[in-house]
Every structure is written in C-alpha cells, then in structure tokens.
Design a protein around this nucleic acid. Structure first.
Length: 735
DNA sequence: GAGCACTGC
C-alpha cells in the first residue's frame, strides 16, 4: 500500500470503517491524473450502506433508515452507481445530467461520500444550490436518508444560518456562500469534492464558481469536481470543462402532450383566460397552472377567471373552480393557499384549482396535482444597459429550455397536457435555446470586485463560460475606480479590499465604510440595511390613501433616506411588534429582514474595524452628516433639476428623469442623490434625498472634474460656480 | 402619479 493511503487512514476521523478498510478484496487502487485514489466498488459501499451500523457514526441504523433505503434504490440514478463510481475514480471533473426525479441532488453527494469515506480526513464535500430553501430542505432529506442528525455529518450553510459543525462531511450550501468562502480561501482547501448543482440555471455565482473551478482544478489535482445540470446544454459544459466525460441519467416524470395554437395570439392575456376556462369545461380532472409575468397581471387575471367560473358553475356548465395567485411578493400565508385541497367534483364537472403564477412556479415552488399547464411564452427578465448603466425588467419571450421546464410541471404526478399560446413555428424559430445567463444581463460592479478579491487580476482573460460584454466590464471597472476600490492600474485598494468583505453593492459598502468620517456610522448602518431589503412600505389597493397618510408622519423634508431611518427608529422604539407594523402600513417581514442584515453588517464592520459612531440627535448636523455620507458612496447617482424646473437630469449621462411618485420630498431641491434608477413607463429615480452641490465637489472631486461635463453646459456652469465659491471660501478662511 | 420576475452574499 502507498504511504499516502496509510497516512489518510491513520488521520481518519472515521475509525468505524473497518469493514471498508479491511475488506481488501473490495478495494483497489486506481491511479489517475497522477494521484492515487482508492476505489470503492458498488458491492463494498452497498454492504456498508446495509449496516447493521452506520459507518459514519457507528450507531445501529434505524428501521426508518432501511425503509428509506429501499426507496432510494428504486431511483433511476441508483442503476448507474457503478458507472458513476468508475467515472469518478478515473476523472477529476465529470458532467452529470439528470432530469427532474432522477434523484441526483440527494444521491450523488452520498455516492461521493461513501466513496470518500475511507480517505476523508478533515476534508468536506460541498454541494451548491442556487436557492436557500433548496439547500436547507435537501440537507434535511439527506440527513434523514443517512440516518444522521442535521448539522452533524450532514449540514447546510446559507446566509444567516450555518447549520454545520466539526463533524460535517457533506454540506449543502448556496452558490453565493461558496463564492464568499473562495474569497478568503482561494483554493477551497477544506473540500475534497465540490458538486455544482443546477448549473444550467447559470446564476452569476455559479458562473463565477465554474471559472474558478477550472483554475483550482489545475492547482489541486486532488480536488474532484462534479457539474450537475439538466440535459439541454450538457455538451457546452463538457467542452468548457476540458472535455469532461458525461453521465446521463433519465428522469422519472410522466409524458406531457404539447399543444400549440394554429395562429399567433394577439392578446396573450385574453388567450390565457379563454384557455383556462376551456380546460375547465372540456378536460378531465386535474389542476391547472398558468404562467403570467407579474403581480398586477396575475391579480387581474384571477379576478376575471373567478367571475367567469362563477357564471359557468351557476349555469351548470362546469364544476367548482378555486383560483389562486402566486408571486414572490405575495405574503407567505397567501402563498401557502395554493396547497389547499382541490374542491369536490359536482354534477356539472370536476372540481379544480387553478394557480396563476410568475416564474416562481417554474423552479422555486413545486405544486403537486398539476395536470394542465397554460404557457403564454413570456416572463419578466432583467436586462442591463451598460450605456446608461441601468438594470430594468422587461416582459420578454421565454427560451425553449424555459418552455420545456414549464411543460414539465404538468407531468409530475401523472400524464399531463401543456397548452402553448404560440405556434409551433414560433417555438422552433423564434425562441432562443437558453435564457441568457445572468452574467450577460447584469451590472457587474459587485462581481468585478469579488473577482479581484478572488485573486483574478486579468478579468478580461478570465475563462468565463460566456464572457460579458466588454462595455459592461468597462463600466464596472470605471465605477470601482471612481469609488476608489480599484486604483488606476485596476488593483484592489485597501478600501476595495474592505468593501469586498461586505455582502453589499460597492456603492453601499463604500458609504458604510466611510460613514465614521461623517460621525454617523450607526445611522448609515441602519440605512444600508433598509436599502438592502424589499420595500418596507405596504400600500394595499383597498387603503392607498390611508397608507399614504400614515407614511407622512415619518416623512423627512430632506429626503426618503431620512424617512426610512425615521421609520426604523420608530419601529425599534415600538419594540417591533407586528401589530404596530400592521397599523402603520409597514412590512414586518421586511423590517425583520433589515434587522438581520444590520446584525450581519455590524459583525463585518467589527471585523474590518469600521467604528460605530453617532452624532447626538440634538446636533444640528445630525441629518446633514448622514446626507454627506450618502454622497460619499452615491456621488455617481446624482441628478440636477432641469431648466424647465419639473424634471431632473442625471449627471454625466444626461438622462431626463422624473421623481418617482413614491418620493416624499416636500419641495423639489436643485440637486438630489438617488438610490435607484427605474425604467418602466418612463425613467424614474426612486428613494431620493436632497444634497448640496458643494458636497459633490468636496467629496468626489475626481468624478466632478469639469472637463467631463462638456456635453452639458448647464451642469458645467453650475459646477463652475461651486468650484469658484469653494476657492473663494478657502481664501477667506486663510485670512 | 406608479409598481416589485426570481435569486444570492
């Protein structure tokens, strides 16, 4: 036996593997990529899995364990365990594709774990997920399957919650969390195997991790990498990962019949309503899922369908129909209603429910009992325009992959039907294959900062699976340079290093780090947390006026940022009860979330030695200090009132914008800083506060260089005056 | 006088 093997055995923290270790017949040594690894055979691992004792903790397996084990061995993926192990032993990287129901997310990590068990020392196996709930629920399931305590041998790690410990060998985590870890440990040295699950979703974090994995793979021949994805673009993953071998496992779903329209639909909303009612009248039992694009559209459709369905029921033309909306900003108790039982059949026809949902039902939420899917072929998608530096949401046609995913939702419990409200020709010729990965649709300033912290110096030649547009990269580098997070050579500055440790956009991070200079880091910390969560204001359709009136009592004349702070302080002094929030039209959920973010940021501040300071509330500069701190991070998001006195013009880009109607400023100040640029029916700036122009030239002289304003005479001359005034007062103060 | 698809640190 090789010395390496002996070493790993004597270091092993799992001394219970005698039956694996001693049964030398079951084991063989395999050499690949210059590294010696011990290969377990299916017979050996199945023996270990069959007990009587759990090899991971030496406790006898429970009866429940064996019941689950039988089910696991029925999963499609189990048939290919042998094949998987062979590939795993012989290769450093494998691409694994398995459709819904194949069991890949729960089983593959266990296959790895049983295989690694003989030589696991202190290393771990990580399996990433794009969503927190998935990481949590899969970890729970796998802990049950392995008959261990969650947080023990099997755990999970997501933002705000680390449920793992010193004994954890398998850790499910969000992709963002692993990326954070990589920022402080560039080779991810604590892991012996990293599994990137749901890679086809192409989240920003997964894309960066994939590029990182390629680099780490070369530096760490001992690291195993498994990329798991849905089938469609397996070739692309293989090619990207040095022609890694592919293992494909069939899913376990029921067939779904696809129907197209003969002619293009002029009005997809109207067509969707008609289709739902037609299914309800003509088709056999089974619930319906309809995909629409947003809250307003969904609520509207729900009302119309409920009205029509009532008529049909009264006429005796159809059975009862319950209609449920489903979208992300719907309160959780209302989201849960989709799981209510389907209404009883009546003489006139089967009882059904119909769920009208955004894309949330495409991946994040699974509803059992869906037999019919209505797919109009649209969704709201984020797009980024680097020219004007604006991210916006646009209703766009979905991709073929997305259409396939939607259809699949009809076949989870029995054969189903999917009604596509577009022609087959349109599906073939007009839909793109895959939704563009997030990296091509986002502002990358956060990502660029992360990459720098990850030790990637040459961002342009980093091996992206899909390289972002050069202009997007330029914008990000330029923004980080103005924020002084990167120097003129593009290297991380001490400020940039600090900023990268905060889970925040760079402008928020810089504002927070600089806030002690303005004697208000306590307040800016609260403000940053409030700006990092969904809106804390609730404005129900039924009580808009009242909600607006109550909001007014918190309003600060100098701007929405200060209003947010006022609300937060009132919330804290009311002891944050949900009744108080309800009565003041505030979202308790958002405020709790802001509190969590605040705590996390505060820990980061302590770690980065950013002091917590407050200006006494009585001080006349209390609010001024906060507004000045705001400018130190948001000087690139400033607008000046335009000549007509109604609109605003953004600095440098010269975009005509309006104050968002939610803005609470009592007067329209000459200069404002804004948190967000929203492009909807027209261009709005949202969450706006008044600032003094002399702060701009004082706090961001590089950005407010007069030579950069030649295309806007009005702004240039205004700035010129301020520079002159500043010079004069400097002279004056010298006397 | 308008709106927040969905995630994540």
């Amino acid at each position: 036996m090789e010395p390496a093997l002996k070493k790993s055995r004597s270091d092993s923290k799992n001394p219970y593997l005698s039956h694996l270790e001693d049964g030398s017949d079951d084991l063989e040594s395999v050499s690949s990529n210059g590294l010696t690894r011990r290969a377990t055979t299916v017979e050996a691992v199945e023996k270990a899995e069959s007990g009587p004792n759990n090899p991971f903790n030496n406790i006898p397996f429970s009866d429940k364990y064996f019941a689950i084990l039988d089910g696991r061995r029925q999963l499609p993926v189990h048939q290919q365990r042998d094949e998987f192990l062979k590939l795993y032993h012989e290769n450093q990287i494998i691409v694994f594709v398995g459709e819904t129901g194949s069991g890949k997310t729960t089983q593959i990590p266990q296959f790895v774990l049983y295989d690694e068990l003989p030589h696991l020392t202190n290393s771990q196996v990580a399996c990433t997920q794009p969503r927190r709930v998935a990481a949590m629920s899969v970890a729970k399931r796998v802990a049950d399957e392995m008959d261990v305590k969650l947080g023990g041998e099997v755990g999970y790690n997501i933002r705000f919650e680390d449920c793992s410990g010193p004994n954890t060998m398998l850790k499910y985590m969000t992709d963002g969390m692993l990326l954070r870890e990589a920022m402080n440990d560039h080779t991810l040295s604590r892991y012996s195997c990293i599994i990137l699950d749901e890679a086809h979703e192409r989240t920003l974090a997964t894309d960066i991790l994939m590029g990182l994995m390629k680099r780490i793979a070369q530096r760490r021949p001992d690291l195993k990498i498994i990329v798991m994805s849905a089938t469609l673009d397996a070739r692309k993953f293989q090619k990207y990962f040095f022609e890694a071998p592919l293992l494909a496992v069939p899913g376990r779903t029921f067939p779904v019949e696809i129907y197209y329209t003969q002619d293009p639909e002029r009005d997809y909303l109207e067509a969707a309503l008609r289709t739902v009612l037609q299914i309800h009248v003509e088709e056999g039992p089974g619930d319906i899922l309809v995909f629409l694009t947003g809250e307003e559209e969904i609520e509207d459709a729900c009302r119309k369908i409920a009205l029509e369905a009532d008529d049909l029921l009264r006429e005796g033309a159809a059975g009862p129909l319950n209609v449920y909306p489903l979208y992300g900003s719907l309160p959780p108790n209302l989201q849960q209603r989709i799981f209510e039982p389907t209404p009883e059949d009546s003489k006139s026809g089967p009882g059904r429910k119909v769920v009208i949902s955004t894309n949330i039902a495409e991946t994040s939420l699974t509803i059992d009992g869906i037999v019919y899917v209505v797919d109009p072929g649209f969704s709201k998608q984020k797009i980024y325009n680097p020219r004007i530096r604006v991210e916006s949401l646009l209703v766009s046609p979905i991709s073929k992959a997305s259409a396939q995913q939607r259809a699949g939702r009809a076949g989870r419990t029995r054969p189903g039907k999917c009604f596509r409200l577009y022609t087959e020709d349109a599906f073939r010729k007009e839909l793109i294959e895959q939704t563009y990965p997030e990296i091509l649709r986002s502002n990358l300033s956060s990502t660029v900062l992360e990459l720098k912290k990850l030790g990637i110096d040459d961002l342009v030649h980093f091996d992206y699976m899909d390289p972002p547009a050069p202009e997007t990269m330029m914008r990000a580098l330029e923004e980080l340079n103005y924020l002084a997070c990167l120097d003129d050579e593009g290297s991380l500055t001490p400020l940039g290093r600090k900023a990268s440790d905060f889970p925040l956009d760079p402008n928020l991070a810089v504002m927070l780090i600089k806030s002690p200079e303005f004697y208000c880091s306590n307040e800016v910390l609260s403000l940053t947390a409030l700006l990092s969560v969904p809106s804390i204001f609730v404005r129900p359709n039924s009580a808009r006026k009242l909600a607006d009136e109550i909001r007014q009592q918190f309003e600060h004349p100098d701007g929405d940022h200060l209003t947010l702070l006022n609300v937060y302080h009132a919330y804290k002094s009311s002891e944050g009860t949900s009744d108080w929030c309800w009565n003041h039209f505030l979202s308790h959920r958002a405020l709790i979330s802001a509190d969590n973010v605040r705590k996390q940021l505060r820990r980061t501040m302590e770690r980065q030695q950013v002091d917590l300071i407050s200006t006494p509330f009585e001080d006349k500069n209390y609010y001024v200090n906060i507004r000045r701190a705001l400018v130190s991070g948001f000087f690139m998001q400033v607008a000046k009132k335009s000549a007509n006195g109604k609109n605003y013009v953004t600095m440098k880009d010269n975009q005509m914008v309006s104050l968002h109607p939610s803005c609470g400023l009592s007067v329209t100040p000459e200069w404002v800083v804004y948190n967000e640029f929203v492009l909807t029916t027209k261009s709005f700036i949202r969450t706006v506060s008044s600032v003094r122009p002399e702060w701009l030239v004082e706090l961001a002289p590089n950005y407010y260089d007069l030579d950069d304003f030649d295309n806007n005479k009005e702004v240039k001359s205004a700035l010129q005056k301020i520079y002159q005034m500043a010079a004069r007062s400097k002279k004056g103060s010298r006397k």
